[in-house]
Design a binder for these strands. Structure first.
Length: 334
DNA sequence: CAGGCGTGGTC
DNA sequence: TGACCAAGCCT
């Protein structure tokens, strides 16, 4: 794997070149951004982020609203809150120096088993067993582990531990992830190009693409809501959602709870002459699908909240579902 | 442990 | 075209 990595490693903005010393801040940031998120989506966000907050100290001192806006569109917004919390903890509890020990890293908010191991190995050269979805797939095929996930996790982790080298554990982890990303892919793996093919029990037994076995996913329920777009003097009313729960801490358009049947004008943020638009906006979340109605009004009231200039709405940092709703309103107005 | 938690790309 | 999927974490 290490020889294959030396020949085929991807060049990525957060990855040290051979002979370079990794920057722990950049390794950590990239690992968090890459949680359940593609390299293509992370690439431009990583560049913008490190240009704005280049180290732990600057991030620990960052403005919360600006941080959340910078994360808008990346999803799983708890990651952004945890980044700031972890940066503050590094400054307050660790003298501004990122801890190198996997167990200590694990205590920082947003660093779970995978990320703590990945940072220890990649940033600090420690031996750590790094198991993400790529490694799970490669290992399940290499050893023909047919137990369905998540039950197979114990066996997969033990197997990954056995093949992790004592030196260059970081390169080994990144090699496994590059292999899983480009060769040992979920649907149609390129086994002819794989350095592990001669030893792969999944190949020997046939149908490696069927591994790992996963449990069937449950159907997503449908929910409905109404977005309340209210204008005053060329500005629109925005709110900030509570820190916990869906889209926590993010700027948003006012909306009531999302429920099993279309709620119409229930839970409007203020009394006004609401007009229902004859279009809806659909959006899929991880665990439910959402269909939004749009209610529009003008007001002179001094409603609590943030009146945001519509011409600068791009800079508000709205999560995608609200950006879609805003675009739908403005498409007809504009 | 199972479920909450986003989004955009891919086939 | 919709279902699956991506460098998971937290409760």
């Amino acid at each position: 794997m290490l020889a294959w990595y030396d020949r085929h490693r991807r060049v990525l903005p957060w990855r040290a070149l051979p002979g370079e010393t990794p920057d722990p801040y950049r390794v950590w940031l990239s690992e968090v951004m890459l949680q359940q998120t593609t390299v293509a989506a992370v690439r431009p966000r990583f560049a913008a982020w490190v240009a704005r907050w280049r180290d732990f100290a600057s991030l620990a001192a960052a403005d919360d609203a600006e941080v959340m806006a910078a994360w808008a569109g990346l999803g799983y917004y708890a990651r952004a809150r945890n980044l700031v919390a972890a940066a503050k903890a590094v400054v307050a509890d660790h003298g501004g120096v990122f801890p190198q020990d996997e167990a200590v890293l694990r205590t920082l908010p947003g660093l779970g088993a995978y990320t703590a191991a990945a940072v220890a190995a990649i940033a600090f050269g420690k031996r750590a067993v790094v198991v993400d979805a790529n490694v799970e797939r490669v290992v399940a095929r290499l050893f023909a582990i047919r137990t369905p996930l998540p039950g197979a996790r114990v066996a997969i982790r033990a197997a990954a531990d056995r093949i992790t080298p004592d030196t260059r554990a970081g390169d080994f982890a990144q090699a496994m992830m590059d292999l899983g990303s480009g060769i040992c892919t979920p649907k149609a793996p390129s086994c002819l190009l794989c350095p592990l093919e001669p030893e792969c029990l999944g190949v020997r037994e046939g149908a490696p693409e069927a591994l790992p076995v996963k449990a069937r996913k449950k159907a997503k329920p449908q929910r409905y809501g109404t977005i309340f777009w209210v204008e005053r003097d060329g500005s629109v009313l925005l709110v900030t959602r509570p820190d916990k729960g869906l889209l926590g801490g993010m700027r948003a358009l006012p909306t009531g709870p999302w429920v099993e049947a279309p709620p119409g004008l229930a839970d409007a943020p203020l009394a006004a002459d609401w007009e229902m638009r004859n279009v809806t906006v659909a959006h899929g979340f991880t665990h439910f699908d959402l269909q939004l109605a749009l209610a529009v009004a003008r007001t002179d009231a001094h409603q609590a909240g943030e009146w945001w200039p519509i011409a600068e709405l791009d800079r508000a940092g709205l999560p995608t579902v609200f950006a879609k709703a805003a675009a739908a309103v403005l498409r007809r107005d504009g």
